[in-house]
Nucleic acid binder design. Structure first.
Lengths: 332, 332
DNA sequence: AACATATTCGCAAACCATTGCGATAATTTT
DNA sequence: AAAATTATCGCAATGGTTTGCGAATATGTT
């Protein structure tokens, strides 16, 4: 193992002081051009890189961001992660990625880990177990660590948030579905306790009632893919089955589609389908499923820039909402 | 902003020396129980956490691992990432996750970023642009940073590697397919230049020839999902279409399944299907697709423990190969 | 009382890079 | 020739933690 490349070692080899070497590498005007050249050459040769930890210790600026998601391997979050990683690396920031496993205790432990590693800021999607006590995040802000929430966000507490227009998405989905006349609508939603579910549900049913007051709408809830499969299979096996299907999320869509395949229903002939999605799952089927987009990638970039703004310009927390967009497949 | 919780601040408030406080918090026997108690209480109150950067600077042990994958949002890698993250956090390691975008230059830049952040070790899946010059990794090993390759690994150069038994997977898939008599087999593979493709292809065709010498096997290559869709659609539209389909990867399976749906072929009635997969995509269909497992999760845990071994016990690099396993769906 | 042994704690250096300020030498100005 | 500038560079402190070693006090042994 060769000698480590540190300012000290370089300075000793060149019979210079540490500070001279440091300044030479920074092109400081105090240093003679000749000296700079010698230093630069040796530094190059020794593959010198400043020790990031020593820099952090002095500057208290880690250029490290914490990123906490419920699950890395989720259909949705990994596109978010990928986007943030790209943006971050382009600007010299690194990412510490942690998963909270939808568990409050793990989430708390992760926040502690972030503090321990002196992150410059934290991006977080709240875990499913909804947290009433947000004081831990308030304390982070107080101690100078900005927090940006995305996807699952607390409402109206003055935090920086980047989220989807959930009402608009529910409304757009219903409106799209009702462009053709429908006899009966089956709509499958997730955990009714989550605010995201409530918002989408409210807007969806309200729009249906407004545009087609006489069309029956059957609402079901499913906690996961298997439940979505069972519920859909059961609902679509009836004699007077629905001719339109709405799925609130990718997870539900994937379960529902298994039921559609099992029953060998033709899409969109026998049943029209629309989902709210990131885009990946709808693209797996033929015909591709029409969906209202909730882009992890876009949210990721927005959230990162919100963070950057707060870090660099000390801007006040903003609440950003990405509007919904319809992506046409051929399932309606 | 309250006073920062540092050893220095605590020591001043308690009229003790910094070293005493440090030792008290570490339960060092030299310190009186009474003193320890006082220190612990104040530290608790002040929410003291040792500054990770300072610790690293002293101990030269960053407990930070670099993790480089071609793409975070890949069907396969995110399960790997999730597994490594879990194992790492449980042992007090943090992860710096970087994507190489299948680009050699970015990969190199990422390695530099790892060095800059003084990672304790690097886990890397080689990017698609196959790298002939592995000296950059040799230099890492020389300077004391262990490297563990996974998934896409260089063969037989004395590096630590954790990979899938690709030949065995190809063989197992062929054997499973041929448990029933088949008239004609369609097999779709990825980029023929990748060693993973060559290995799977070789074993698959050899096994077919051995078990059913007279059954025709049609081999196609597809670089992505769209190509897989087109190729499958075309091949299965012919009069003498195949009654068995093999897909080398998730990406190809997802394309091929769109063609199967388009043609409204019944599975496994009209066509039997098997794939090599991580398990997620096969579970999306009904019936679920039978697949030979390549578990990102298992590879992740193995790779992390290989890394841990090298870090802690300075063990020599091992080449580990995970054997293949059949997961039965109902598509055969 | 004199000595030996524990017990309890602090000093100071080390990790590495940064930076204000002071010091020295070289050059120019009066 | 003396004074004032300018060009170069080093000293030393800082950031927070760890640790070998020495110092001080307390306890125990003859």
């Amino acid at each position: 193992m060769k000698t480590k490349a540190t300012l000290k070692n370089i300075s000793e080899m060149l019979q210079l002081s540490i500070s001279t070497v440091s300044r030479a590498l920074k092109d400081h005007p105090d240093i003679a051009e000749q000296t700079k050249k010698k230093v630069r050459e040796l530094a190059e040769m020794m593959d010198y890189e400043p020790n990031a930890f020593a820099v952090y210790l002095r500057t208290n600026n880690s250029r490290l961001l914490g990123l906490i998601v419920p699950e890395i391997s989720d259909y949705y979050y990994h596109s978010f992660i990928a986007a943030v990683e790209e943006e971050a690396r382009a600007r010299g920031y690194s990412l510490m990625i942690l998963q909270s496993a939808n568990d409050l205790a793990t989430e708390t432990a992760n926040i502690r880990l972030c503090k321990l590693n002196r992150v410059a800021g934290i991006l977080v999607a709240l875990s499913g177990g909804e947290r009433k006590d947000l004081s831990i995040f308030e304390r982070l802000e107080e101690s100078g660590i900005p927090v940006v929430f995305f996807d699952k966000v607390p409402d109206g507490k003055g935090f920086a948030t980047v989220s989807q227009a959930d009402e608009e998405a529910g409304q757009l989905a219903a409106a799209s579905l009702l462009k053709k006349p429908r006899k009966k609508i089956l709509a499958i939603f997730g955990n009714p306790d989550l605010s995201i579910t409530r918002k989408r549900l409210r807007a969806f049913t309200a729009t249906c009632k407004k545009l087609a007051p006489s069309t029956p709408v059957k609402i079901l809830h499913a906690a996961n893919r298997t439940e979505a499969f069972d519920a859909t299979l059961h609902a679509l096996s009836r004699k007077d089955r629905a001719d339109a299907l709405f799925c609130m999320s990718d997870e539900i869509l994937s379960g529902a589609m298994k039921a559609v395949h099992r029953l060998r229903l033709s899409v969109p002939g026998s049943i029209g389908i629309i989902s709210i999605s990131n885009g990946f799952i709808p693209g797996l089927f033929n015909p591709e499923i029409t969906y209202v987009e909730t882009s992890g990638e876009k949210i990721g970039r927005k959230a990162f820039h919100e963070m950057l703004d707060r870090l660099i310009h000390q801007s006040m927390p903003r609440e950003e909402i990405l509007s919904a967009r319809l992506v046409e497949g051929a399932s309606l």
